[in-house]
Simulated scan of single mutants.
Amino acid sequence: MAGIHLFPLLGACAVGSFLGGAISSKQNNTSYTLIGSSCLQLLGLGLMTTRSGANSAEPSQYAYQAIFGLGVGLCFSATTIVTSISTAESSEKATAQGAVAQARVLGGSIGLSICTVIFNIHVNRYLEGHLTKGQLESLHRSPLSGLQLPVDQRDLVKTVYAGAYSEEIKILACICSVMVIAALFTLEKHPTPLRIVSSRSKEDQFSRRGSESETEMTDLHNTHQIV
């Protein structure tokens, strides 16, 4: 069921990734895309904070997820395009793309660690006097173990989980606020035209082919001399 409830978020993320490339297909609009994507993420998270109760499974939350997911998808595609534009040399593009990929993994790991810490602190603060030590340890190992508790304790755990989720969303919203400010620094009066980037790529391909041809000719000449 969790995957179904997250489908609006994941689907909108895929749509945003496609739109990010389409927006900058003819003109370099990556800066505006980054700013718009960060604003969409902030808007989606801000709206999510209004539906943070234990019984907040309302249709509106799926719309909020879609807004946030659209911003994430736009950010992914725009970041990839910016990396391609900012690296003039073909040898630097692979390094830059690898750095962006590692940054995403690192950011996800840090975010997951922060959310786990927030969850554990929230659980210890509000459930320490209501559950046994063994039950708390079970919740820390697997939050789904709360489904095995009695009904009255299960409702309490559900409320605490909703409170922890609300705190995590607020922290993410603060991070997105910083992201909006950082995106503003990508604005340029005269952004690099995409045709220049395309011509650079073609020149790199021709030069690489030329160097390979020269190497082949040199090897062939050396072979004839040996024979």
Rank of each mutant, 00 (worst) to 15 (best):
S31E: 14
T192D: 06
P193Q: 07
E92I: 02
V157S: 03
H5K: 11
A103V: 00
L19H: 01
F76G: 01
H130F: 13
A88I: 12
L147M: 14
G36A: 06
H130R: 13
V105K: 00
E216N: 09
V151D: 15
V151L: 14
A101G: 08
V180K: 04
S109R: 02
S25K: 12
G71S: 01
M1T: 14
R51F: 11
H140D: 08
G3H: 03
L106P: 01
S91R: 13
T79G: 10
L74P: 03
L112V: 05
Q148G: 12
E214L: 15
D152F: 07
L9E: 05
V105A: 00
H190E: 15
G36K: 03
L147I: 09
T218E: 15
I118L: 12
Y32D: 09
Q135K: 05
L184N: 02
H140S: 09
L47W: 08
A63S: 06
S145L: 14
I118P: 03
C75K: 00
S91I: 05
V227D: 12
Y165P: 01
A2K: 06
D152A: 15
Y165K: 04
G210Y: 10
I85E: 14
G146L: 05
L144D: 14
D155L: 15
G16C: 02
I110V: 15
S142R: 11
F76D: 01
Y32E: 12
L45T: 07
T95N: 07
R154W: 09
Q135M: 10
A78F: 04
E203Y: 07
G107R: 00
L70R: 01
A182F: 08
L139H: 06
Q205E: 11
G53M: 04
R195N: 14
T49M: 15
T30H: 08
T215A: 13
L172K: 06
A103D: 00
M1N: 12
S90H: 08
T50C: 06
C13S: 10
H140F: 13
A99E: 04
E168S: 14
K26E: 12
L45K: 04
I118G: 03
K93S: 09
A57S: 10
T116L: 08
A12N: 01
G46E: 05
S166K: 11
E92T: 04
Q27E: 15
C176F: 09
G129T: 11
L43A: 11
A96Y: 02
S38P: 00
E58A: 09
H130C: 08
G210L: 11
A57I: 10
R195L: 13
T95A: 11
C13E: 06
Q61A: 09
R208C: 09
L149I: 07
L172G: 06
Q97E: 07
Y64D: 09
T215N: 10
C174P: 01
S91K: 12
L156Y: 05
V100K: 01
Q148F: 10
S166C: 05
T83E: 00
L43P: 02
I171A: 10
S138F: 03
L106Q: 00
S198H: 11
S56N: 08
A54E: 09
E89M: 09
I85C: 08
S213Q: 11
G3E: 04
Y165T: 08
A14K: 02
S145I: 04
K133T: 15
L9I: 02
G129M: 07
T218N: 13
V180D: 06
L172F: 10
V151R: 11
E128R: 14
S198A: 13
